[in-house]
């Protein structure tokens, strides 16, 4: 387990960071705040969307900590579009299912995935097209990050995770695809208190647990 002060020391300028969440739901808001306080800059951010100006990963965009964002949707955070048009922020838009598969590939040792999504659209630009049994697919390459910031509902002290409702989204995928995995949890319980059948992400993938609301031993 880790305190807010320790979280802040894990970031460096220019890092690639993945964050779970869908429009802020399932985003570890306190870890995002820790990043803001750490004053880290020029990050490459991988997330489903850039949420809103005040919530989710949105404040990282608003406070100009991001150099490049890889996401499926930026429409709910007007600041992302403004910085993109002004040439201040690089934005790579990726279809949501392709984003999920690229993170999976990064986390599961694959060299990429072949998907039909985006064939015949601007998404295919610059990508290798591969025909399998007469159907065209795009080769989409893996995504990995140095740090993944995840949100779970409950963890045991071995790091086994349970997510809640639609807050699961990209979190389990990202747990596999980063060098250091930090999870913000609402509850921490003893080892054995979570039935192994109920575990959604096994603890071997989790490096640091931050208990929401502050520091606990």
């Amino acid at each position: 387990m880790i305190s807010m002060e320790e979280v802040s020391t894990l970031f460096t300028d220019g890092m690639t960071i993945m964050a779970g969440g869908f429009m802020g739901v399932g985003t570890p808001q306190e870890l995002v705040s820790a990043m803001l306080e750490a004053n880290v800059r020029d990050i490459t951010l991988i997330a489903n969307d850039t949420a809103f100006t005040e919530t989710g990963v949105g404040p990282l965009i608003v406070n100009r900590r991001v150099k490049k964002v890889i996401a499926s949707h930026i429409g709910t955070n007007p600041e992302t579009g403004r910085q993109m048009i002004a040439g201040e922020l690089e934005v790579e838009l990726v279809p949501q299912g392709t984003l999920a598969e690229r993170v999976r590939a990064g986390g599961s040792g694959l060299g990429g995935v072949l998907t039909p999504t985006g064939v015949g659209t601007v998404v295919e630009e610059g990508k290798e097209k591969i025909t399998v049994d007469g159907r065209e697919f795009l080769l989409e390459k893996p995504l990995r990050a140095e740090v993944a910031l995840l949100k779970a509902y409950k963890a045991d002290k071995a790091g086994n995770l349970i997510y809640h409702r639609s807050a699961r989204n990209f979190n389990p995928l990202m747990a596999l695809a980063a060098d250091t995995v930090i999870v913000q949890v609402e509850q921490i319980v003893e080892i054995g208190d979570i039935d192994p059948d109920e575990v959604m992400t096994p603890g071997i993938l989790v490096d640091k647990i931050f208990v929401q609301g502050g520091c606990q031993s």
């Binding site: 499926s72 930026i74 429409g75 993109m84 949501q96 039909p116 999504t117």
Partner: peptide, 15 residues
């Protein structure tokens, strides 16, 4: 004018 991103739409129409 408007570049919100495709979200899940491209996957939905494909699949």
């Amino acid at each position: 004018k408007m570049v919100p991103g495709m979200g899940g739409a491209m996957d939905l129409v494909t699949g």
